[in-house]
Design a protein around this nucleic acid. Structure first.
Ligand code: FES
Ligand code: FES
Lengths: 151, 151
DNA sequence: TTAAAATAGGATAAAATTATCCGAATTAAA
DNA sequence: TTTAATTCGGATAATTTTATCCTATTTTAA
C-alpha cells in the first residue's frame, strides 16, 4: 500500500506554521522564544525545526537573535500582515498553486488534465484561504483557548 | 529549501487515476490494455505503475487478466459508478479526510488546531469533488479531446 | 505441448523528505 | 574577559516514497 495521498502540508510546513504562531504569540508579550521552547510547545523535532526557522528568517518572516537571551521573534506591528501564504511560500519557494494536480508538466487551461476543472475550485479556495489568513488571528485563537498547537 | 508543500496527490495516486481513466476508455472499446500500453499512454514508470495497478485490482477497482492477450479492463457497466474517491481510497487505504492539516493526532472539533476551521471547508470541497466525480465523465472528456493524460 | 505474452510479487535501489549531530559564530551577563 | 546560552550551518542518518529488476505464474495461440 502506497501511503498517504492528500497532504495539505508537508511536515516542514506544519512545523513552520505552528512555530510562527507561537513566536507571534510570544512577541505580543514582548519576549523572544528559543528553539528549545518552540519545539517543546509545538511538539516538533528540535534540529529539524531549526532548519525551518532558518528558512523563515532568511525570508524575513521572522527575526532571530543569536547568543544568550537570543531567540526568535516577530515585529509586533507586522504580525497582522503576515499571511499563511507567506510562511508556505518561504518554505516552498513558490510554484505552489501552479502545478497540475495530476502531474502534467504545466497546469494549462488550453491543455487541461482530466481533473483540471474539478480541481481548480478546490485549489483556488485553498489559495484564497492561505492568502486571507494572517498570523494575528491564528495567534489570538490560541491565546483565547479556541485552538491548540499540540496533542 | 524543503520542497513542495501542497500535494493534491502522491505520484502513486496520480498514476492510479490516470491509468484508471485510460483503462476505462479502452474498456468502452472492448479492448484490454497492457501495462506497457498504459505506462506509455500516461507517461509513467512501468514497474511502479504495475504495483499501483495491482493495488487497484486487489481493491476491485479494475480487473486484470494474466497471460497472452491479457491486460487490464473495467466492467463497462461499472465505469460510471467508480468515483475518484474509490481510486484514492484503494491506493491510500482510508484515513484520508480525517487527519489534521497541521499534524495533530486527531482532527477534532473540540480540540482544533489553529487552521481547523479554515481548512475544513477546503477539505470538504475536496472530499465532495472526489466523491462526485466518476470515471465515465473523465474518460469521455479524454475521448472528446477536452482533456489530456500526458505532456 | 510448446512458446510467447502478460500479470503477480518479492527483493532491491534511488531519490526525496524528515530527522539528528556537532562544531562554529554570536551575544549578553557575570 | 570569561562563560553560558543561543542561533547557524554543514555533514550525516533514518524513513518514506518512488522506481527498477528479476523470477514465477498464468493464459492463449500455434
Ligand atoms: S492541468 Fe491538471 S490541474 Fe490543471
Ligand atoms: S484539528 Fe487540525 S484540521 Fe482539524
Amino acid at each position: 500500500m502506497y501511503q498517504i495521498v492528500i497532504y495539505m502540508f508537508s511536515k516542514a510546513c506544519e512545523y513552520g506554521i505552528k512555530a510562527s504562531i507561537f513566536i507571534a504569540l510570544s512577541s505580543y508579550k514582548g519576549v523572544r522564544v528559543s528553539l528549545k521552547a518552540i519545539a517543546k510547545e509545538i511538539n516538533s523535532p528540535e534540529a529539524f525545526t531549526a532548519k525551518i526557522l532558518q528558512d523563515l528568517v532568511r525570508h524575513d518572516v521572522i527575526n532571530s537573535m543569536k547568543g544568550a537571551y537570543g531567540g526568535f521573534e516577530i515585529d509586533k506591528s507586522l504580525i497582522s500582515s503576515i499571511k499563511l501564504s507567506d510562511i508556505v511560500n518561504a518554505i516552498d519557494g513558490d510554484a505552489i498553486y501552479s502545478g497540475c494536480g495530476l502531474g502534467l508538466d504545466t497546469c494549462d487551461e488550453d491543455h487541461p488534465c482530466p481533473v483540471h476543472h474539478k480541481f481548480k475550485s478546490v485549489r483556488e479556495e485553498l489559495r484564497f484561504m492561505l492568502e486571507n489568513t494572517n498570523l494575528e488571528e491564528l495567534a489570538l485563537n490560541i491565546k483565547s483557548g479556541a485552538s491548540f498547537l499540540k496533542v
